[in-house]
């Protein structure tokens, strides 16, 4: 049995404007550990008046992504190299199509159960989707719409894991649109050939939009890495909601979800190397 070195945690807050307007949080996220893999999904329901059930659409999107990827992980249990090959072969078309189609089918079923409205407009449930899978040998990231997946190397250098063509303003690609799968971007990295980042950060667009510039946003990568090294996961968890609240209040006013995925072995090695007398405690 190979042990996965990566672990993940995250939190979310309702946007300052949504609190003020008494509207729901439209962000949803899910972290699942299946066998020797970690699956993360983050979705940001559009929230505008014509997307009246987008919080539900976001929840269904994270469920669909996690279910599909979990099923693939189970089918390839102990054979992650085969899963890598499968995902590489299908990332361009059939996998994005499947995720979008299953989401649409699930939304239709959900709508029939809950509503007297005969007609369904998928836009009601419109959402973005960020999906991530990490195993001991590769990582896989999917993006449909806005939001960010950043990667941070051991020196703190932070770069986008997926480069997207950002749409200006408040519009975004949506899983609800026709041929939504065409707007899916997938990036994969194999540990055998590529250096694996020590930290990944997944966030909804309310986070990046809260910083005065891209440069200020990118500083989060090195800062979170330093905090992990110096204080560890629990200290970050204790503070994360407060930080996200401060960010939405002084920034975009939008809902914010932030998930950190990091290599706990490399962080522990760093602790032992730099703080050899302080294992298990901090001063």
């Amino acid at each position: 049995m190979i042990t996965l070195n990566y672990t993940a945690f995250g939190d979310q807050v309702r946007g300052a404007q949504h609190v003020k307007n008494k509207s729901k949080c439209q962000d949803k996220f899910k972290i699942e550990k299946i066998d020797d893999a970690l699956i993360i999904a983050v979705a940001d329901g559009h929230g505008s008046s014509k997307c009246k059930y987008s919080d539900e659409g976001a929840q269904l999107a994270v469920n669909v992504f996690c279910d599909i990827i979990a099923s693939l992980v189970k089918q390839h249990s102990g054979r992650m190299d085969e899963l890598y090959s499968y995902l590489s072969r299908n990332k361009a078309e059939s996998l994005p199509k499947k995720i979008v189609q299953v989401w649409k089918d699930t939304v239709e079923k959900n709508h029939q159960k809950k509503s007297n409205e005969v007609e369904i407009d998928l836009t009601f449930y419109g959402t973005t989707l960020l999906g991530f899978l990490i195993t001991e040998s590769f990582c896989f990231a999917l993006q449909l719409g806005d939001g960010d997946i950043l990667c941070v190397n051991s020196g703190g250098q932070t770069t986008p894991f997926i480069e997207t063509d950002k749409i200006l303003g408040t519009e975004t690609y949506s899983i609800s649109s026709e041929k939504a799968w065409e707007n899916v971007i997938i990036e994969m990295r194999n540990q055998a050939t590529d250096e694996f980042p020590v930290l990944f950060i997944i966030s909804t667009d309310g986070f990046a939009n809260s910083f005065v510039s891209d440069e200020e946003f990118m500083k989060t990568g090195a800062d979170y890495l330093e905090l992990l090294k110096e204080y560890g996961e629990n200290e970050i968890k204790d503070n994360l909601k407060n930080w996200l609240n401060e960010t939405t209040q002084n920034g975009s006013g939008d809902d914010i979800t932030l998930v950190l995925i990091y290599d706990k072995m490399r962080i522990r090695l760093w602790e032992k190397f730099f703080w050899p007398d302080c294992e298990g405690s901090y001063w």
């Binding site: 910083f211 005065v212 510039s213 989060t220 401060e246 002084n250 006013g253």
Partner: peptide
């Protein structure tokens, strides 16, 4: 702890 990341601003 101090919030990670750079300067914040409204849009």
């Amino acid at each position: 702890l101090k919030r990670p990341g750079g300067e914040l601003a409204s849009r």
